[in-house]
């Protein structure tokens, strides 16, 4: 089948939905905290505003500072084509499975961390150091959980994983799947910089991680980075929902199936958003050096998932 239409459609859907997800989480969080909060489409307005503005480049920065936003945005966009969204067949699944997804996101992070160091400010270095550390210790937990899923499907190709899951929609009730879901959910919290690991709303030097790295970015560059971060967040949420709850995934890219798939997809994403908001409102941010303990829990969950695959 033609791959260009699905690729364009999925890319467009991801680009459009991802800021909305950020907005929904923000608004819902505000409501949970009995605030009114911003409108759900505020992120679109932010992006529009940022893209129109001029930008300030630090005089200590090199070309790397300017390359970074593009790498962050492009890797996130590319990854969004490698995972199944509304149909089991991801447009670019041939170009890379779950390992490529993880490593492409790591490429974006690598550049982002360098961009943080490039400004010469202490904040940038602080953010880079913390971001790289946390992502490094999140990695084994993520991989163990992913391996559990990949072993069950006998493939690292995400389309194959989704296909093998479609036939048995209630498989997520198996202990190994539930444990792996728990592990990946903790990793999702850590990777998207949410409470209790990082606070996306803070600009206090003692607590910020992601925000510290991008402190010197402004204008269109900041827009690209913010959009890239939203894309990455949606990618991870999609990964979570479609590998564990493949309900409603269309088997091809034709109209009725796609519409149903999109409907199911939005509901599933909304549920995960609710979960994230619940975690964010009921927890306080952890001290930086408590984070490894949380991620160790994730790793143990993942390892248990693996061992229960062996047992059951």
């Amino acid at each position: 089948m033609n791959v260009i239409f699905p690729a364009l459609a999925q890319l467009l859907l991801f680009l459009i939905i991802s800021p909305l997800v950020t907005g929904v989480i923000r608004t819902m969080k505000a409501r949970f905290q009995t605030r009114r909060g911003p409108r759900v489409w505020q992120p679109y307005l932010d992006l529009h505003k940022l893209l129109r503005k001029g930008m300030i480049i630090p005089d200590t920065a090199s070309w790397l500072f300017s390359v970074t936003p593009y790498v962050v945005f492009l890797t996130a966009a590319m990854v969004s084509l490698m995972i199944p969204m509304v149909a089991t067949e991801a447009p670019l699944s041939l170009f890379g499975g779950v390992l490529a997804v993880v490593y492409l996101l790591a490429l974006g992070r690598f550049f982002l961390a360098l961009g943080g160091l490039d400004t010469g400010s202490s904040f940038g270095g602080l953010g880079s150091s913390r971001e790289m550390t946390i992502s490094a210790i999140a990695e084994p937990a993520m991989m163990v959980a992913i391996f559990t899923v990949a072993i069950a499907a006998n493939s690292t190709n995400l389309s194959e994983v989704a296909k093998s899951a479609v036939g048995q929609s209630w498989r997520f009730l198996a202990p190994s799947q539930m444990l792996a879901f728990g592990a990946l959910f903790i990793v999702l919290i850590a990777e998207t910089g949410r409470i209790p690991v990082d606070n996306p709303a803070t600009h206090l030097e003692l607590t910020m991680i992601h925000e510290a790295m991008i402190l010197e970015y402004s204008g269109p560059y900041l827009a690209l980075i913010e959009w890239g971060a939203s894309l990455k967040q949606l990618v991870l949420i999609t990964l979570l929902v479609n590998t564990f709850f493949p309900f409603g995934l269309s088997s091809d890219w034709h109209s009725p199936g796609i519409a149903i798939g999109l409907g199911f997809y939005l509901i599933k994403v909304l549920i995960i958003c609710c979960l994230i908001v619940l975690v964010e409102t009921t927890n306080a941010k952890m001290r930086l050096f408590r984070v490894p303990e949380l991620l160790a829990v994730a790793f143990i969950l993942g390892a248990l998932a693996l061992i229960s695959t062996f047992l059951f």
Binding site: I56, A61, F73, S121, P220
Partner: peptide, 26 residues
């Protein structure tokens, strides 16, 4: 291929903005 996206964004929005080289926030 995907670099077309930022290029498109720049065409649609970014042309008016200036680049200023300024000291890092200290």
């Amino acid at each position: 291929i995907l670099s077309a996206l930022p290029a498109l964004l720049w065409l649609l929005w970014g042309r008016k903005g200036h680049r200023y080289i300024e000291p890092t926030w200290d």
